[in-house]
Design a protein around this nucleic acid. Structure first.
Lengths: 178, 178
DNA sequence: TGCTCCATGTAACACGTTACATGATTGC
DNA sequence: GCAATCATGTAACGTGTTACATGGAGCA
């Protein structure tokens, strides 16, 4: 799995503690890759053992156990190796589409409320992404290569939300017909 | 998990053996929900024990162990119950996007070939879906409610492929800039 | 003092993947 | 007779999820 690589990239973007990573994997990064804190701690332990990352007591640790991890050369090498191998195409598992398949074969199911909730969810996400875009990429003129790529990744998310909303509206229309 | 529900819906669409389900979950259904044959046999066993489905020796079984399963009333009831509960929003884990995040923070990575392969993959899928649409929904005039919903589900897939292709082309352009 | 948040972990279990095994049928 | 495909399964392992536990810091 690429869980470890997701963490390596995240640590390259910013050296962090396990807890900070967990928060980020619930939010911005989480929009594209989700993980629980247990997975993260487990993986951080493995990667430290493998010499990919090094953790040390954080400056602001006080008497807490807070440790901040950073990527070692071996971790960078592993990322390079991984980037070169063929990408596994992710296979979706979408409970919503599944319910719509159910609605197709079971006439008695009325899923209009589900579709409305789905539209609302994706409209909320769209608004969130738009806010992130305005916050992180306010000036289209002065952007580095890194900024441009990161903005494109965000725009992929924006594009999907718009697609989902349009599609769900067409679906709603179809469900309202006998 | 909704693995069992995916199988129930698939069995409602057409009573089948485990092997037939496995083939379908690699192909058409697999575009929206993937499963290996081991998962399928395991789940069929559980569902039969729970009284959701019943299996009997297939008509064309001969001396093989082929068994065809069909959904029992308890299985239908379970689908109805499941459709009524709130839908868990699926969280994506996309290795390709992850690699692009890596490219953003590691200048030395050249992922242009990856992007080209990605474009080719989604163009191939687009063509596949278009072929399925022409085969399964040839006559837009005479379509049942069921057909219309199933076509919309397929069109969601088509829409995503087009989005991915357009987006990847923009990304390719960004990667070619220093 | 008690509440909430920060921070890290263990343990048990469910789910998913991979490798391997078995035997019948179909076509060359 | 052999290979490919149909058809079902077991076993082992890795990953993901859920529940629970622990303790410090900041605040009212």
């Amino acid at each position: 799995m690429s869980m470890s690589h997701a963490l390596l990239i995240s640590l390259l973007e910013k050296p962090s503690s396990g807890f900070e990573l967990a928060r980020r994997f619930e939010r911005s990064i989480g929009y594209f890759w989700h993980a629980t804190h247990q997975q993260i701690y487990r993986e951080l332990g493995r990667m430290e053992a493998a010499g990919w990352i090094a953790g040390q007591a954080a400056d602001d640790a006080g008497r807490t156990r807070k440790r901040v991890y950073q990527v070692l050369p071996a971790g960078r090498a592993e990322l390079t190796r991984w980037a070169g191998e063929p990408t596994e195409s992710s296979l979706p598992r979408d409970a919503f589409t599944l319910k719509m398949r159910a609605a197709a074969v079971m006439d008695e199911l009325d899923l209009r409320a589900e579709v409305l909730a789905y539209i609302a969810l994706h409209q909320a996400r769209l608004a969130e992404y738009q806010a992130i875009e305005q916050r992180d990429f306010p000036d289209p003129a002065r952007m580095s290569r890194k900024d441009r790529i990161q903005q494109l990744i965000l725009q992929r998310g924006l594009m999907f939300q718009r697609c989902e909303i349009d599609w769900a509206q067409a679906l709603l229309h179809a469900l309202e017909q006998p």
